[in-house]
């Protein structure tokens, strides 16, 4: 695999900016005097734990979103499942209209507090946009290509594997990116369902009115979100089929 599609600028700018941001945060927080509440919230082990929980939440929920949404999207775009597609779209719209915090809170009543509840809420919230994206993308493939593929003798599985899925790769990757971003965001709300994560720092900062705690939590979350998005954008660049690139 060649790596010629990722330019130096793309490769360097974001991590450097994030690194500088984190460094500044670290220098600032180690050079101000903290009161006992702040010390308690910002002790190193605690922050690391929250950060790790946040990454875990994002990774696990994204994994399940993809495992559910992609096959389901492919299935719903097959001819025999056409009648079910509008139902899925309607459900997706309803899901988009539901506030994430409300969904998480309701799940807490039903399943109790804990990481599992938070994960289920995050997956439920992100499955629908990724699903509708997958369906839209598969439907956007030029029908004459499918006609040509069948016309030269590809079996239905062959058409899916050799034409539809490769052509849908950009869209699948966009789905992955969407899911990741949504999950980093919803992950901050996992704190309200007892799921842990950086949301705990922000919440603590707000309730105890400690600005520094708030800022550490928020900046770490922002950095994580931007980092994840950057990684996803690199993957998008690298993994899209070459023939589909817009410019040379």
């Amino acid at each position: 695999m060649k790596w010629d599609r990722i330019t130096k600028g793309k490769l360097l700018v974001t991590p450097l900016v994030l690194l500088a941001l984190l460094l500044a945060l670290y220098l600032w927080i180690t050079n101000v005097s903290l009161d006992s509440i702040e010390k308690n919230s910002l002790n190193g082990g605690q922050v690391r734990l929250y950060l790790w929980q946040q990454i875990e939440l994002t990774a696990i929920s994204t994994f399940f979103v993809l495992v559910i949404a992609l096959p389901l999207g492919i299935l719903l775009s097959r001819g025999f499942a056409r009648p079910a597609a509008p139902v899925a779209i309607a459900l997706a719209n309803l899901g988009q209209a539901t506030p994430a915090i409300g969904l998480l809170a309701l799940l807490t009543f039903w399943l109790g507090i804990g990481q599992r509840t938070a994960l289920i809420g995050m997956v439920a919230y992100a499955v629908l946009p990724v699903l509708s994206n997958t369906m839209a993308g598969l439907r956007a493939i030029d029908p004459t290509l499918l006609d040509a593929a069948r016309g030269i003798g590809m079996s239905p599985v062959g058409v899916l594997g050799r034409v539809e899925l490769p052509l849908a790769v950009p869209l699948i990757l966009a789905g992955v990116r969407t899911a990741l971003i949504l999950n980093v965001g919803t992950g901050t709300l996992a704190a309200f369902a007892g799921g842990g994560g950086l949301g705990n720092l922000i919440t603590a900062g707000i309730t105890t009115q400690r600005t520094r705690v708030l800022i550490v939590g928020a900046v770490l979350t922002v950095c994580l979100a931007l980092l994840v998005d950057w990684l996803a954008s690199l993957a998008e660049l690298q993994l899209s089929p070459r023939g589909l690139e817009v410019h040379q």
């Binding site: 030029d142 004459t144 290509l145 006609d147 040509a148 593929a149 016309g151 030269i152 050799r162 034409v163 490769p166 052509l167 790769v169 089929p241 070459r242 023939g243 589909l244």
Partner: peptide, 12 residues
């Protein structure tokens, strides 16, 4: 089988 818009697969 050959068709009007050539139907070439753009990713290949």
């Amino acid at each position: 089988y050959a068709i009007q818009s050539s139907g070439l697969f753009p990713h290949l």
